[in-house]
Amino acid sequence: MTNLRRSALLFLAIGLILYGAVYFGSERLVYRTGDSNPFYKIATTEDRAFDWVILGASHAMPLDFADFNAQMERETGLRILNLATPGTGPLYNRFVLERFFRRHRTRRVLYVLDSFAFYSTRWNEDRFADAKLLRRTPFDPALAWQLARYSLNDGVRATAVLDYIFGFSKINNRERFESDIWEGETTFDRVARLSAAADAKRIDYLYPDAVPDPAVFSRYLAVLETLIALAGQENAQVVAIKTPVPAQFYGKLPNEDAFNDAISDLLATENVAFHEFSREMDEPGFYFDTDHLNRAGLTAFFSRYLKAVLVGN
């Protein structure tokens, strides 16, 4: 072996040791700053059994903002774990639920539906590779294996698996010392001034494909079916809801009626209860931005509708 090769190997070995140390430090920071990441919640919850697990995208997240989850638990006497993740569709939510069922149980799953999450790979396959999620997901070999399976079977990018295993997004996390709080939570008590321009911008963001591709929609409906089946295998009953949004925002959602029809048909076939609350609360004071309930809105929503769903089922 030449001197150059020996030196290169030694350099590499020391580099790997240093990388391991940095990785270890970054992983510790994930636990120290963790908050809203679903896998962080699963890894750190002390309870094994729950009455409800909440899944969905950002519209489900306010249910866990500040002390609202604890408030719901107090008022219903139920144990609730919110595993919703912003901008995620059924594929990511099924991934989360699979992980949850490895060591935990729940009697029911509340799936907060959003049509945008069924129309684009951006909110499903692509979302797995988002550094913002990966950098807050604690390392677990079983989860790495599960992610690898999703890469093989469900089209998740291999880079997501590599990133997760090598912890690059955690090491490279620019917000490594900041708490993992979704930006919406910092404005939870705010009342938004509704704006048509802001609505249009938000709709463009949520629905990148102006015309939803029927094949893509069908695929994610099928994924939702497998999620329901997964819950069924674990003796958990799924309940689906749509949370309220301002009427002017709802009016701009593309193909929402068609989405409601399709999802209602599927859920009826699967024997899943579906509660459509989208148009139930139009008061502008109930939202902290274009379409998310603020504390007052959520309190009203809970007392008027959600509590009955949680307790009544």
């Binding site: 350099f11 020391i14 580099g15 240093l18 990388y19 940095v22 550094a131 690059f168 090491i171 490279n172 620019r174």
Partner: peptide
């Protein structure tokens, strides 16, 4: 020499923007 190399490599990993 190697300390400089490692410092540069880890600066790239930790502080770099890779988007």
């Amino acid at each position: 020499r190697w300390s400089v190399y490692y410092a540069a490599i880890f600066a790239v990993l930790i502080l770099g923007r890779w988007q």
